[in-house]
Write a protein that binds this DNA or RNA. Structure first.
Lengths: 350, 350
DNA sequence: GATCGTGTCGGTACCGTTTCCAGTTTCGAT
DNA sequence: ATCGAAACTGGAAACGGTACCGACACGATC
């Protein structure tokens, strides 16, 4: 004499496979066979079991399945800073692919701290994820590499360079052509002193962007005027480096911000000092964000498809999760978009 | 005669508690007691077990523990769009708190699709998360509410309003005072026709912002000039609505963008039509982003601490995960920051 | 009529823990 | 010396499934 409402109440204990078996009057193993689509099942059996399943609102326990099968259908995602729109876009791309394949994504923020990278990787390892996607805060931190070498599940590295022996799949952007195009554009406009504000050398994109700038300058026969301000990919460094540039004599006539956080710091400093873009300073940024297109004037930028970056990272991982044992590498392009933030340098500063 | 390298090779099978027990020559249950800090353990026993643990590099299997204990130490996080910086900031705040408490965060993007909301919640339920934090795409979709009523773990809802009977904890912003201050500021500058571009009415912030605007206008004795363009909180709607506003006659003299995506659309449309801010149109946006501060001119905005929003959501969930059975509600403030994007309307349009 | 394959099904040994229960020892108190 | 409680330990039953193995019935085959 139980009423319908209580019978389907959320708080009641969930049914187990054993109860289904008892209700259907069959063996537990038969229930398992029916539910997992095993061929050795008569239609009569299938019907009885499915009816019991429906009546008890049974659903299999994911934990028990995972323990028995040795797979959790989950992947760990270590990211430098989720609140960075770039990283968020990568995450978004990866998440949708993983979700489509039935995997779920465990997210951990490393706050761009290399030590947390290592800690998170270890954590995921004990959490028994089936694979990991990593956007490391530093490629060279020994503790991270040490931990990585003990990981026994497939790894995909996003826009980073890691030692071969880790057997990680990799998806990267080819940052050089984009930067090269940007620098050539500036040089063609008449700029000679171009400053690149960027992060530390333990990140692949940073090294490649610097290399791309050198390539472009060398290609145009300019060898001694490269100005590179490395630091961190943060607004603070962008702001401080811009201040430093503004104090230089002779002053650079163009700035390339090596990331969207750096961009914010640069714009803040330039605005504060009343430096007009592009009148007093030409300006290029790396990685397209809302600000670059909507700024007045719009800011020329070296862009890339970040959602694709995440999507492909997830696809590479899925490949290895479904049997492919050899790691792969995918390189995605970057493209330069000229905008009104670049103009010939003021006559006096040439 | 195995060499050291292979012995510590990552690919070897991980040791189980049984192997530890055999090596230490004790019962499995004793190993468990030592590792879980049970008081009934002799120091001799502890020593033997710990040595075996070290020698085998044993670490407990999280899956088996979860199955046995009935807790997974993981929480599900359903979010409308992770690539929205606002949502990303909330996520960041929540993640760091959860991480600090030993929980991991399962992230699923609903792509602002209410049907995916429901699907994800169900998915998390079968995944056996210990709790969920939800930023629903729609508060009113029956399928979502139906699924929610069957959830048997604690729920926290972020900046949304859900029926009492779901027993969800809630953290929300009080959007009215912020918008009210913004509108009053505009009115005091001389504006009478103020347009609010916002999303659909099935979201708490949308309703509250509209209400806040009405309150402010009524407070100033303006009753018949409220212009509200509801749609979605997207750049497309922001752009289309702005176009519509520009065609109105008499034309509104101020626009309030009801979100950061809307903001992007608005700015794009205004720029394309050569509408100058604040000369031709005063402008306010909701939710601070890089663009609002760094735009020329800087854009006045109704801001809030989004990281705190996420942090408190996580804290509310942790409370309920550690025994507190009654749901709670926390309200966080919003504040208006006046900036150069607001000025008195042009003489002709008063 | 014995043999054999095939389609079904039940029994049971796991997966790796936790925890309860019962048994043994130790030890201070009477 | 004896008793009882407390400290310690091992065995085994869970947790909720999966999958292998063997049993059985049945028809087909020679």
């Amino acid at each position: 004499m139980r009423d319908g409402a209580n019978w389907s109440d959320a708080r009641r204990r969930r049914a187990s496979m054993r109860e289904v078996a008892e209700l259907a009057n069959v063996a537990i193993s038969s229930v398992s066979r029916v539910l997992s689509g095993h061929p050795d099942v008569s239609s009569d059996m299938r019907e009885r079991v499915l009816e019991a399943v429906a009546q008890l609102e049974y659903e299999p326990d994911f934990l028990a399945q995972s323990l028995r099968r040795g797979a959790t259908l989950s992947v760990g995602w270590v990211i430098g800073d989720i609140s960075n729109p770039l990283m968020a876009a990568i995450t978004s791309g990866a998440e949708s692919v993983l979700r489509g394949a039935g995997y779920s994504m465990l997210l951990m923020n490393s706050e761009n701290d290399p030590d947390l990278d290592a800690a998170h990787i270890r954590f995921f390892q004990t959490r028994r994820v089936d694979g990991m996607i990593l956007s490391l805060a530093s490629e060279r931190r020994p503790s991270t590499l040490e931990v990585l070498s003990h990981v026994d599940v497939p790894i995909v590295v996003v826009d980073r360079e890691v030692p071969e022996h880790l057997h990680a799949s990799v998806v990267r952007n080819d940052h050089r052509p984009g930067i090269r195009a940007a620098v050539e554009h500036l040089v063609d406009l008449g700029h000679r002193r171009i400053a690149l504000i960027t992060g530390a050398l333990d990140l692949w994109p940073v090294r490649e962007r610097i290399a791309g700038m050198h390539e472009a300058l060398a290609g145009r026969g300019i060898t001694d005027e490269t100005i590179t301000l490395t630091g961190s990919l943060s607004a603070e460094h962008g702001e401080a480096a811009t201040e430093e540039i503004l104090r230089m004599d002779p002053r650079p006539t163009a700035i390339i911000a090596g990331g969207n956080q750096v961009l914010a710091g640069c714009v803040r400093a330039l605005t504060r000092h009343g430096v007009s873009i592009p009148g007093d300073m030409s300006f290029v940024t790396c990685d397209e964000v809302a600000l670059s297109e909507l700024h007045t004037p719009p800011i020329a930028s070296v862009g890339r498809d970040t959602v694709a970056l995440g999507r492909i990272a997830a696809e590479l991982l899925l490949k290895r999760l479904t049997g492919v044992s050899e790691p792969e590498m995918v390189i995605l392009p970057t493209t330069f978009t000229a905008r009104a933030s670049c103009a010939p340098p003021a006559a006096g500063s040439r």
